[in-house]
Each structure stands twice: as structure tokens, then as C-alpha cells.
Amino acid sequence: MSPHTFILTLFLILAAIGAAFFIHLYRVSCSTEGPGLKKVGAKRLFTLVLLLAVFLILLSVTLPKSPYYRFTDVVPEKTVHVTAMQYTYMMSYDAFKPDMSDYKPPEGGVITLPAGKPVEFRVTSADVNHGFAIYNDKFELVTQTQAMPHYVNRLRWQFDKPGTYTLLCLEFCSSGHPAMRGMFTVK
């Protein structure tokens, strides 16, 4: 199951449980005779402990998977310097200034990265906040970071499938936002 389908399924199941609880509440509230809610204190304590336990487990499972802690002990095979600007991405294997005076386009015009090896993107912006979201050839979001002026975010990733990857901007950057695109290939 892809992470996308997993997240949707998880949400739908939890939402259904939530909805069922409220439908149940409505139904019992309509019955003319009833005992009322018994042992409120015990139920409250149970809910509290259950919720805290679930959260504790979730935190310990998910926090280490945060992007800041992944691929930290590797030397990236390739580094791509990215400057986002309204409404495109300038990319090069070498660092360059925002006025593009020392910008060297990649050979063949397209950034090519090795498959199955860790790579690093150093992402910044020349004007406003932008997104740097990598989509695979099925147009599923693989990973992302933000491009913020004055700062460089380092996104490390390993692409296992060769192919063409598309970049879309995921931070609203004015009217050209949906047309802002970039691409690279993985071989």
C-alpha cells in the first residue's frame, strides 16, 4: 500500500469511528427511558489514559521518521543547488548567485541523478517563499521542502526508481504559482 493510500485509509477508518460515536450518542439520547451515563469518572480516566498512550506510541514511532533525521550519516553522491524564483527553479551542481552571474547550467540542460544513491538538494529562494515538491512519474508526491529566502534547506533523498521527476511549488507565490515547474531525471 502506498503511503498515500495508507493515510487516506487510516483517516477514513478513524473518521468512521468518530461518526459512529456521534450516531450512537444521538440514538441513545432519543430513547425515552435510560440509565444515563454511569461511571463518568472511570470512563473519563480510561479515555484520557488511552489517548495519552496512543499519542506516546505514535510520537515514538513517527518522530524518528522526520526528514531531519533521515540520511544524516551518508555522504551524498550528488548535490544539487536550487534557487526557486517566481516562477521557476534554477538548478545546478555548483552553487551560484541569485543574479545568475555565475550560474552554470547542467550538461545537457537537465539535472541527472543516480538511482539508488543518496543525493542532496540545497534549496533556497531568490524572492518569496516557494515550495520544492518532488513528484514521481505517476504524479505522487515523494518528498518536499520549502524554499525560503535567506535560508538554505537541505533535502536528502534516495530515488530508487529511475525516471523523470517533476517539481511543483507548494507554497503560494502569486499568480504564476500553478505554472511553476521544474524537472530532473534519475538514471
Binding site: 548535490t79 543547488h81 534557487t83 555548483d94 552553487a95 551560484f96 548567485k97 541569485p98 555565475d102 540545497r122 533556497t124 531568490a126 535567506h150 538554505v152
Partner: peptide, 14 residues
């Protein structure tokens, strides 16, 4: 004071 120039990371990984 926070105004910055780009290219401070110039030369990185060279």
C-alpha cells in the same frame, strides 16, 4: 540588519 546576499554557500562541496 537581516538583509543578506545569496551565494554564501558558494563553493560548498567543491
Amino acid at each position: 540588519e537581516a538583509e543578506s546576499v545569496m551565494g554564501g554557500e558558494s563553493g560548498i562541496y567543491q
